[in-house]
């Protein structure tokens, strides 16, 4: 192994790389810009779409409303819910995304519940569809509240307080400064990002070094070159050193990209 020859190849590869816009873009510019744009951009888009869903509210259909007049009234009065008249084609409407969910009360629901007989309320929905799932969670919250009211009433009838069911509560309280909380969250992601960045940043130089040589027709030039004392192994060493450098720059650039939008010092 001749370190001088590896150095010659490495220096040539360095010059070659620094003049390649694609490599500069993928190892330095993209990681610095990508993280702020991706994280802030995605967060912004997600927040916007959630606000839109909340603003527009959920369209709900009540099936067998007369079986549960009290509960139906609670649903009707809940903010963010628009009730449409019951019809047989609720499943099709949910599939067409015109209806977000349908709540079905079985016959004698209220009478059975008051007589301590368990009943099942069905929530028809579109699994995986965001707005339908928002409606489902809203309905679950209403049903849960109604159930709590019933339980509390029954306990009172039997001379018991609701604390019988929940002898104590637990409460979490953060004592760490907010910047440390943010730093910790990013710190957990950091090792994974570095691994990802290493590969991403070195991808363009790796392609350039292997397929690029063949594509541009320089592979025959280097293989036929009079390699006086230079083993072809040196070409690989020089090339690998170039990739390691690309790994390094991509990682450093990526780290800087992450740090740009960190909440506080890590």
């Amino acid at each position: 192994m001749n370190p001088a020859s590896i150095g010659v190849i490495y220096r040539k590869e360095l010059t070659d790389t620094l003049r390649d816009r694609r490599t500069i873009l993928s190892t330095i510019v993209l990681p610095i810009l990508m993280f702020p744009v991706l994280t802030l951009g995605f967060g912004f888009v997600a927040a916007k779409s959630m606000q839109k869903v909340q603003r527009e509210g959920s369209t709900i259909m009540l099936l067998g409303e007369t079986n549960a007049p009290t509960l139906a009234e609670t649903v009707r009065k809940t903010e963010g819910i628009r009730i449409i008249p019951a019809s047989e084609d609720y499943a099709m409407r949910i599939g067409d995304k015109k209806l977000h969910a349908a709540l079905e009360f079985p016959s004698q629901f209220e009478a059975d519940v008051n007589a301590n007989r368990q009943q099942v309320v069905k929530i028809y929905n579109f699994a995986g569809e965001t707005r339908s799932q928002v409606a489902v969670s809203l309905l679950r919250r209403i049903l849960g509240g109604y159930r709590d009211q019933l339980v509390e009433a029954r306990l009172m009838q039997n001379g018991l307080s609701k604390e019988v069911l929940r002898p104590f509560e637990s409460k979490e309280e953060n004592v760490a400064p907010p910047e440390k909380v943010g730093g910790n969250a990013i710190g957990g992601l950091f090792p994974y990002l570095i691994i990802f960045l290493c590969f991403m940043g070195a991808l363009a130089p790796a392609i350039d070094l292997t397929v690029g040589e063949k594509e541009r027709g320089t592979i025959e030039t280097i293989l036929a070159s009079p390699v006086n004392g230079v083993h072809r192994f040196h070409c690989h060493c020089g090339g690998v050193a170039r990739l390691l450098r690309a790994h390094f720059f991509a990682s450093v650039s990526g780290r800087n990209g992450v740090l740009q939008e960190r909440p506080g010092p890590i």
């Binding site: 010059t15 003049r19 541009r216 027709g217 320089t218 025959e220 030039t221 036929a224 009079p226 006086n228």
Partner: peptide, 16 residues
């Protein structure tokens, strides 16, 4: 290889 010079249309140059 040290004693040979090889030239063909396939032996391209490094463009950069």
């Amino acid at each position: 290889r040290a004693h040979v010079g090889f030239l063909s249309t396939a032996t391209a140059l490094y463009g950069r």
